[in-house]
Amino acid sequence: MHFLYLFSRQAYGHSLAREALDMALATAAFDQKVSIVFLEDAIYQLLNATDAQSVETKPHIGVINALPLYDIENIYYLDDDRQSRAISESNLLVHARAISRPALQQLIAAADRVQSF
């Protein structure tokens, strides 16, 4: 079954960002196909230079980097979100790919289970 997760929170504002990511990992661990789209402020979760030491929280980047190890390779963001936040592509993790809004709509339509956090 294809599970699509739509995240829209930045990494450290609310624990749901982290716990929902754990849910996506658990889904993959149960041999389901998982795709994740990091929408709006969730694109900040994909920054390759985040350092959580100053907020005394476990770094989020560790889990994000572990996604391919769980066979989660469909990791996307919207290029509109990136541009409106003035984030350079070189600052995003290499395993995240930009998709268009129509592609996002297709992804939602094609998935068996869609959950947003």
């Binding site: 599970f3 754990d22 658990a26 889904t27 149960f30 389901q32």
Partner: peptide, 11 residues
């Protein structure tokens, strides 16, 4: 329970 039970419920 664990998250596996949620994945099971979704399926």
């Amino acid at each position: 329970g664990g998250l596996g039970q949620w994945v099971d419920a979704c399926i």
